[in-house]
Design a protein around this nucleic acid. Structure first.
Lengths: 339, 339
DNA sequence: TAAAAAAATCTAAACGTTTATTCGGTGTAG
DNA sequence: CTACACCGAATAAACGTTTAGATTTTTTTA
């Protein structure tokens, strides 16, 4: 296989009869370089389809124009949409994204984060799998000058920029909506109890009960995984209670779908005798029958804003950490009665 | 913000009283280095949590340990699963993946690919948006020594490694299955006509008609986009034909879902009077009622194998291009009658 | 018209590795 | 006892940029 050696900035300089530093500057800042010269450089590089060598450039300048993204899953509507938002913003600002997937496996997350080559990253965007010991590691990274923005699943202990949907509000809204529609025995099928957003949504659910003066039963809250099957099983468990609920607020749409399937199977009329509300606004909401009423999570926006915030931190190392809360909104469909 | 300057291989060398080259070699090949020395080096670097500077390393050696992945979408079950497979293999072999998303926008794809910094990539994995002029660009890249593996949507004109599901076989299988179940007027709601897999699936669909000696009507094939709504509209168009079909083979599950929704709405009993079969095995197949019978696409496997193949090309520049065809399989559910 | 200021460009030293080549020391064969 | 091979380690030259600081050229000012 024959491959012609590609040329560098040096060759460009020689061809134009100017020095490399001029070429280098012409290709970037335009600081202190004659517009005329700059034009000649640009023209030649375009003609030759010349690209700067990123490694050399990163080595010399310390900026890689890469940002790392660590997420638990990718085969998932929420996370793939977040990435989509990140990607969009990164693309517009000329950054590349390097993707790390932990599969929600704590061991793997630990290994991955400890081995992350920070030298090839200008910043890091993370949704953690667990509120684990790694936190310490994050602090080391940040202290060594690597900007980090946490999103969705964030560690509370750490002082850093964070971007999350307003879980409390969404849950509160969902629950009061059910109450308004006349359901009085509302269960909550929650996520793993150690995750921050599980706790927040639970809190919103409880607060709504308090504020609306609706009594709440402890056995109506079940913690389990995120899958459709979890929703299915949890619902069956609820149905076999001495006094079953007449509505369910699910921590996400997949579990809500599992719930509806269990209810359909038990011949309970969802949307009339029984209300179900989800969280996310996954496309499956419009596939399940009846269509799922849900709280939309602003996934794309979370991605976009996290990335935007990170880039600010990158460009200005003194930028103060901030927390951004993005509201969701209620999407009314048929799994809750409408009168 | 105070940040302590991180140290390099040079400092390690100084601490150990040996030369940088020895440290460098100890950290990799182990070629020509005393096991004892090597051990000392490893121990110290681990203790100090020292990481090689990737940029310097890439600059000097020419290997970045990064592979680029170009896909049309990410918010999509198929592609996110493919990435999952790629990621898995890359992680195991110590590569990072840099993600590029084109949004299926040809202009953006073009710009993106032309601007890709090949200096920071050891190889490229691509699913193209269109069989466009870019092909020429790919050839330039390959000639300049960058290994490329195409997957899913591949350009036919180009001689390179490719990994695809067996679209023809899957379509053939789907169609004969419908015929076997007694449907005799089978429509095909296809994808955009210029994509290779659209053509392949259409070919399988037609071949099945020929082989089973079932007459085929031209107006039963509709080309359109990939969305649920396209499936919905296409189906309504088919239903308003003078002689409507009694079965549909959809190019993917989303369109099949749209079809089922249209049929449900028209009060046609799917799974009995009317058969619907999809392609992908998207999780929505088990959400739609009736559950969708479909051809499973081996998305994860496609990702894994593409990546594996690419890494072989990276490690051995003389490795001959090959095409890998991965079979799908029929998943029987309720949208086709079972007798 | 000389001095000062501003603009444009150049020189050369980084940046932190890799790696071909060289070197010294030890063991071994003749 | 000398010559040779070999192992382990050191030297130093890349790799292709960036960027202070120096230098030259041009413009402005007095």
């Amino acid at each position: 296989m024959v491959m012609k050696k590609s040329f560098g900035i040096k060759d460009i300089a020689k061809m134009l009869g100017i020095s490399v530093s001029t070429v280098s500057r012409a290709l970037r800042d335009a600081y202190d370089v004659n517009p005329e010269t700059k034009k000649r450089v640009i023209e030649l590089t375009e003609k030759l389809n010349f690209k700067l060598n990123k490694n050399a450039s990163a080595l010399a300048s310390g900026n890689t124009k890469n940002i790392g993204v660590v997420i638990p899953f990718i085969t998932n509507y929420y996370f793939s949409t977040v990435i989509s938002g990140i990607q969009e913003e990164a693309y517009n600002q000329g950054y590349n994204i390097i993707l790390y997937v932990t599969n929600d496996d704590i061991e793997r997350e630990k290994k991955l984060i400890e081995n992350i080559a920070t030298s090839s990253l200008d910043g890091l965007l993370i949704s953690i799998s667990s509120n684990s010991h790694i936190v310490e590691h994050f602090e080391t990274m940040m202290r060594s000058g690597l900007p980090i923005v946490f999103f969705d699943r964030v560690p509370q202990q750490i002082q850093a920029s964070k971007v999350v949907q307003s879980d409390f509000d969404g849950a509160y809204q969902a629950t009061t909506y059910l109450i308004e529609k006349g359901y009085d025995r509302i269960a909550h099928i929650a996520g793993p109890s150690e995750l921050s957003f599980t706790q927040e949504r639970l809190r919103g659910y409880l607060q709504a009960h308090t504020d609306c003066k609706v009594p709440h039963h402890k056995e109506y809250v079940i913690f389990s995984g995120f899958g459709q099957s979890h929703g299915f099983d949890d619902t069956n468990a609820l149905l076999s209670l001495p006094q079953p609920p007449n509505a369910i607020f699910a921590v996400n749409d997949r579990k809500a779908v599992g719930a509806i399937q269990a209810l359909n199977q038990a011949c309970i009329r969802v949307g009339q005798d029984f209300g179900v509300i989800g969280f996310t606004n996954d496309p499956i909401s419009t596939v399940i029958e009846p269509n799922l009423t849900t709280i939309e999570e602003p996934a794309f926006e979370i991605g976009r804003q996290s990335c935007q915030l990170l880039i600010r931190h990158i460009k200005n190392k003194d930028f103060e950490p901030r927390e951004i809360l993005i509201p969701g909104r209620l999407i009314e469909r048929q799994s809750v009665r409408s009168d």
